[in-house]
Amino acid sequence: MKPNLKVKIGKMELQNPVMVASGTFGYAEEFKDFVDLKKLGVIVTKTITLKPRQGNPPPRTCETPAGMLNSIGLENPGMEKFIQEKLPFLKKTGVPIIVSIASESDTDEFITLARRLDAIKEVSAIELNISCPNIHEGRRARDEGRLVSQNPQATYEVVKAVRNVTRKTLITKLSPNVTDITEIALAAERAGTDAVALINTLMGMSINVKTRKPKIAMVTAGLSGPAIRPVAMRMVWEVYQKVKIPIIGMGGIMDTESALEFFLAGASAISVGTANFINPKTTIDIIAGLKKYLEKHKISGIKALVGSLII
């Protein structure tokens, strides 16, 4: 019996539940020499904003124990250039495309972006990046100007506004930098998101003791990689017990085993992020690995595994 890897997220029927995390796979073309792209369950683009963004000053990344910090600051060519220059290649892959969008907490910009994407038939879904920790330049100094995804009401409002202008599958990406992530997930669900994706990076910091300078120009940055996996796992598990919509689980997935953990904790699909930087073939290895695991344990399909943690 061939195990069934198919999953449904919103209106999307995916051939397998393996996705790539926004910002770690460029616009897919960067990976064409390493990955047979059409084998992926879905491709999620680097986040697009309405206008082009140059991003933050370097240094933007540094390595940490079992992880890395980044503060790229959503460098991207802007929506129109993305549609002209990046989307044609993505379309050719034949894989469902999820476009990740963000704005500096301006709901109107989210609406404009969503309307524009709603008109493009090759875009299968929209991911709302309301959880990037690196875009509010002045955020350190003041306490307001928190991320949208750090406030249930703000989350509800943005998701609702976008929900009103698009019938495409809507995914909301959540931040782990909160007291109770389930409150935010529930707010997104109430506002009509089709799925929640978690987690975005954890806020972190690293200092060079020789120069006494922060290793990242913006001082604070987002931590990713295997170091954050247990935190991500716990949050997926917590959210799974509260929401009815599918969860896309991510955070330090490096191989089949770590992917399986997320399914057991309640994820319907998983995203590979930082691992793409280290082994660009990670997604393909995991797709093969999941099949093998299901065969070995005589499980008919991946859906049977979701949330099947035994306590």
Partner: peptide, 17 residues
């Protein structure tokens, strides 16, 4: 030279002005 995460142009981490 620059600190790199991916080396293949995906992460945008190693930029110079």
């Amino acid at each position: 030279e620059s600190h790199m995460a991916c080396g293949i142009g995906a992460c945008m981490g190693c930029v110079i002005k």
